[in-house]
Amino acid sequence: MAEILVLTEHRQGEMQEISLEMLAKGQQLAEQTKKELTAVLLGKGVASMADEVKRYCHHILVMEDDLLANFNSEPYQDVLSFLIKERKPSLVLMGHTAFGMDLAPPLATAAGIPLATDCYEIEVKGDAVIPYRQMYGGKMCAEVHFKEAPCHMITVRAGSFPAEGLKEINGAVEQVSFQFDKDYAYKKFLQYVEAAVGDVDITQADVLVAVGRGIGDSENLPMVEELAKLLGGVVACSRPVADKHWLPKERQVGTSGKTVKPKLYIAFGISGAFQHLAGMKNAATIIAVNKDPKAPIFSVAHYGIVDDLMKVVPSLVAKVRERKGA
């Protein structure tokens, strides 16, 4: 019986969220297609992770090797090619992550497997597995059809499938026996580098708490900074605030500042000068807080609060603290 293969992803001893998301979707697909779900876990010193993963799949194939210690697509590709040849899965799932983007295309190409990348949905229609993906920067969705083949491969967009509904299956751990025949010296991992602390790059932040002239005075900045910190984000600003030198120019969002695309953008006291909007309108979620209900910022925001930010910020800070149990 053919199976669905999920390549679990981990870094520095930590299982990545995407792995659980894939397992969740994998369970659902396995049910729908009446197949078994098999996880693949490659690495070095991953035994404890294997114990966790096996709870959610029928089989978990584990291989430990120094060459697999840090993600390197070359040895991974060779192991996976071997496994696919051996086990003939009908579907291989990987994350559309730095990991999967490096690995999936060459693996699929080498094995002659049709691949669809960055999919946010996978449907089963009869015998067919139908991936859905986005195009044109999310402005269009596409239904993709695979060429008929014994195996298909899909990379999955992070956050597309909730990991919450994972069911306990408690599969068995199987060791993979594979012998590397080269040392992959042509592509060597050196080290992980963490983005320097204090070096704020608002274009890279996932959460931006932006303040505008409505902040009134630089003395009010600390409470906003506190909120940003609680949310794991950084403080950005509109032009008047940078002009006042309350915040450095590097924090300014807009056509004369930086263009940002965070997951969450909270605009406090920013009316939404056009040039500012141009710099932030592509944020995934925008929350705007402004006294003026007609402020243009509300036209691009997803959520709006018509109120004085001096009232809203403290109540949010309190609420986040409460949620975090701090």
């Binding site: 002239r213 009134g216 032009r239 008047p240 002009d243 006042k244 000068a273």
Partner: peptide, 14 residues
């Protein structure tokens, strides 16, 4: 118009 409005904002005279 735009620059003066900025000026009014930053001087607190909006």
């Amino acid at each position: 118009l735009l620059t003066l409005e900025d000026g009014a904002k930053t001087t607190g005279l909006e």
